[in-house]
Amino acid sequence: MNLYDTLFWFFSAVAVGCALGVILSRNPVNSVLFLVGTFLAISGHYFIMNAQFLAIVNIVVYTGAIMVLFLFVIMLMNLNADVEPQKGQLIQVAGVISGGVLFLVLIAAIHKASPMPIDKQSIDIGLINNLGKVLFKEYVLPFEISSVLFLSAMIGAVVIGKKEPALPAEGEAQ
């Protein structure tokens, strides 16, 4: 077992363990912390595949921004294990069935897929120069379209967050 394999199995174990922790822990803050661990492990995977840019951007965006906002919301709502609302029986069963079906589909897809070893020749593909060239030359249209998608999401957020114009009070017109 060489260094690459060792690291691969280490990061995989951490990622799977933390992902289990996310769904098994009762306290939502612990869930968020486990999710942070999962993201860090996935970044580690990117690092051993020599995709340094992707790894760091994953950390900056997911761990540094999105998870901080998650934590923020959870802290403000002050969720605790004992005050967490319990779902009804029907919803629990429905959740188990739909999750199981999704799991089945994933298993089937992974089972059929042929393993693709990393191409040692194109080991530099994840470096920022090559990534930039690929993104802005070959895939420039999808890239721009996805940025428009982000823009629309941002505008949507601003519209939702905008203050409602004050309604004229009842009977003021008279």
């Binding site: 340094q52 760091i56 900056v60 761990t63 540094g64 921004a65 901080v68 934590l71």
Partner: peptide
Amino acid sequence: DINIGILFVFGVVSLGVYGVMLGGW
């Protein structure tokens, strides 16, 4: 000397807020 040095700094800085947030909570 990693070829994404600035981004590394940026990533670590963005993690730095966890110490304060978790401690305060």
